[in-house]
Amino acid sequence: MSAALEYAHYQFEGNDELCLKVGSHHPKTILLIPPLFDEMNRMRRMLLDVMRLLDAKGIGSALPDLPGTNESLFPQERASLMIWRQALFACTSELSVAPYVASFRGGCLIDDFVEDVKLWRFSPVKGQMLMKTMMRTRIASDKEAGLSTNMAQLTAEAGQGQVNLAGNNIGSALFSQLEEAFPSPVRAVRTTQLESSTRAADTKLPGSALWLRAEPDDDLLLSAAIADDLALWISE
């Protein structure tokens, strides 16, 4: 797997945002919307493997940084679901990516940034679940430092501007949006889950829940299954 990575950029609110591309010479390109927060770090390597495998199948892919994540210089506390949707729109317009969108975990919360695209989802998650895990991590690390914090306090702190959860500065807008956010019910979507999941899905894929793993890791079984399913979906 030696496909060349292209470090493309798109403009958003005056910042240069990174967008990794592989195989941009192919006739079709899939936009990959990464998981949010720490889940993105744990799954990034797997996603890059998916991109290389897609390239070998003659399919291009693009993986943008969402403002305030990864390499982005956008102020983290200003990020919101709306900002991320706008950024995805800017990215797809500038780099002529779409109309194929594949979103992963929390990325499924913002894949409704444009109409008339074919959507593919992997293990979609509610915003509240992501928030709860991050709040629990903060509570646990406070406890180790001898501080007693609870979710109500963190919610109040977020309401006053921003709150730091598991290393992320979450602004009040994003905090309240995530509490309510769920993947938008759209008609044309192919939903995939892990074989170990009990949730309803159009198809189940082998592999492990990398987002639960303590350290980032790859999973070639999963990345190959995802690339195969994406290739099947895009050919329909």
């Binding site: 720490d38 895990t133 991050m134 646990a140 009990t198 987002w211 639960l212």
Partner: peptide, 19 residues
């Protein structure tokens, strides 16, 4: 189990709630 740090425990609780 060294992998079972506080962040993993947080994820475990949320995942159990969900499942």
């Amino acid at each position: 189990l060294p992998e079972l740090d506080s962040m993993a425990v947080a994820g475990l609780l949320t995942e159990l709630e969900d499942r």
